[in-house]
């Protein structure tokens, strides 16, 4: 299968990238690893006249920690999974990255591509929601910050304008946090049937200080289980709070019967995964 014809650019700096985006606007698209874009092009589900490969831009590929964890969008998923700084500072992110697709895909795919493509089945959007991450977005007029919860608007739709570049992922909730990514898949697919990202910190009295919960493939796009988060703050994790939190979490979901199972079955599995996940993370502290 061959994609439709396109022109290809591989700029080596952000300023050159900005110029290309200003010139070609909606006719162009940024490609990072290409592992969401190239399949869409090959299946001719989309056709893009100007493709701009950002893999030669060194300023988009970094992992740093100074008070906050800062990650360049061009960082490959395999690097996110194995990077020592990320492992030390953000267990949820390294855990989730190690569960994305398969090794070959992780070697090409990038954290920024996963976020910006905003496929409802992609893993990183829910993780970013659970981490309350912030995205530095740049275009030729300047930079601004978009919070993860304002970023994902619908399936394949984000708050990015056609000339915007995701230039930095900023994660503040790292110190004293612990989290995991619970991904439910069938054997035949590497995409999640659904998944839950949880990032938690506790008060001295073992009540929840802060919690972030992101949901993959449980709605049109990745969503934050805001009601469940608010409810769990300053509470202990036990059978009752888990149960109540799950009922609130369901409000953030839009679960339907599909090829993977009936609504009621999926809810049952979701509950098991959520409750065991909460308890498992709580035990670590």
């Amino acid at each position: 299968m061959y994609p439709d014809k396109f022109e290809y650019f591989a700029p080596d700096s952000i300023s050159k990238l900005e110029q290309l985006l200003d010139k070609y606007k909606d006719d162009s698209k940024i490609m990072a690893g290409g592992h969401s874009l190239i399949p869409l092009l090959k299946l001719r589900l989309t056709s893009i006249p100007y493709i701009i490969d950002i893999s030669n831009i060194k300023d988009l590929n970094f992992v740093e920690y100074n008070d906050n964890l800062e990650i360049g969008p061009m960082t490959r998923t395999a690097e996110v999974a194995s990077n020592k700084i990320i492992r030390d500072k953000c267990k949820l992110l390294s855990d989730a990255a190690s569960k994305v697709a398969d090794p070959q895909v992780r070697n090409m795919g990038t954290v920024g591509g996963d976020i910006c493509e905003a496929d409802p089945r992609n893993d990183m959007p829910a993780v970013m929601l659970a981490l309350n991450a912030e995205f530095e977005v740049t275009n030729s007029k300047g930079s601004r910050i978009i919070k993860a919860e304002d970023f994902f608007e619908d399936a394949y739709t984000t708050a990015l304008e056609s000339n915007d570049i995701l230039t930095k992922i900023i994660i503040k909730n790292t110190e004293n946090y612990y989290g995991k990514y619970y991904k439910y898949t069938t054997l035949s697919s590497d995409f999640a049937v659904f998944a839950i990202a949880i990032n938690m910190s506790l008060n001295g009295d073992k009540t929840v200080k802060d919690i972030g919960i992101g949901l993959t493939n449980l709605n049109n796009t990745a969503v934050k289980a805001k009601d469940a988060e608010d409810y769990l703050k300053n509470k202990r994790i036990d059978d009752k709070t888990c149960n109540d939190a799950f009922n609130l979490l369901l409000k953030s979901c839009d679960i339907e019967d599909d090829i993977n199972g009936k609504k009621e079955d999926k809810e049952k599995i979701l509950k098991d995964i959520f409750v065991n996940g909460l308890k498992g993370i709580y035990k670590v502290f």
């Binding site: 591989a10 290409g34 190239i38 399949p39 490969d53 893999s55 398969d102 090794p103 895909v105 070697n107």
Partner: peptide, 29 residues
């Protein structure tokens, strides 16, 4: 499969395994 599922097209790029059916030749430049 030609859809990055099966891995029959696996090659190494700079020592890392990739699925060459989902990589453009220009990306390997």
């Amino acid at each position: 499969c030609d859809t990055s599922n099966c891995g029959a097209c696996t090659v190494l790029m700079d020592g890392k395994s990739i699925k060459s059916c989902t990589v453009l030749a220009v990306q390997a430049n």
